[in-house]
């Protein structure tokens, strides 16, 4: 891999197709959580090669779970979390990609390039409805902070592996947002989707 491809993702990225959902015609305003800055509309690149805006294309009007991870995570935390969410994906069955979407966002986007994420997703045999996402470091830091996955101790905050324990889940249309531990059981995580529908 060429170093340049890891840097300045916006500059060096190849011209990929942009199949983001068009929501220009959406009548409903952005949810209050989005307006309050909890769901910043940052640009992201998926392991599939698609480009998205975080809020408009991935969150808006949807039921989602998203977490942060990095491929080089300490103590194997992230692969274990990914394996866990992979099991949740099976439990959710056909809902995945239809009315439930997963997003795993790299905290180390300069390393976790699209190609790395693609290999990673393939290694976990990830099914449709789940995207691994990379982007600009500063954007992803903004997103992490907006989710409160921050440690007040600056030293602990620098250790990215300290921010991979919780996943945010919610339904943007109903403006319901909770959090669940990715270290919990798959059944426990899957059950959270039972209270996001009505």
């Amino acid at each position: 891999m060429d170093r340049r491809s890891f840097l300045g993702l916006g500059l060096a990225a190849p011209a990929l197709s942009v199949p983001g959902r068009s929501l220009a015609a959406t009548e409903r305003p952005r949810s209050r959580a989005a307006q309050a800055g909890y769901l910043p509309n940052i640009p992201l690149l998926a392991h599939t090669g698609e480009r998205f805006r975080f809020y408009d294309d991935l969150i808006r009007e949807r039921t989602v779970l998203f977490n942060f991870f990095l491929v080089s995570c300490s103590e194997g935390r992230c692969p274990l979390a990914t394996a866990k969410l992979r099991a949740v994906q099976d439990l959710l069955g056909e809902r995945m990609g239809r009315d439930v979407f997963f997003y795993s966002i790299s905290l180390q986007p300069e390393v976790d390039t699209r190609q790395v994420l693609k290999e990673y997703a393939e290694a976990f045999d990830v099914k449709p409805g789940w995207l691994f996402l990379t982007g600009k470091k500063a954007d992803i830091e903004l997103l992490r902070r907006s989710q409160g996955f921050v440690d007040n101790d600056p030293e602990r905050d620098k250790d990215l592996s300290n921010h991979v324990g919780m996943a945010r889940y919610g339904n943007d249309r109903l403006e319901r947002w909770g959090a669940v531990s990715v270290n919990s059981e798959a059944e426990n995580i899957a059950s959270t989707f039972k209270w996001l529908t009505s």
Partner: peptide
């Protein structure tokens, strides 16, 4: 492996 200090 570390990120810059970020405000909560």
């Amino acid at each position: 492996l570390r990120a810059a200090r970020a405000d909560a």
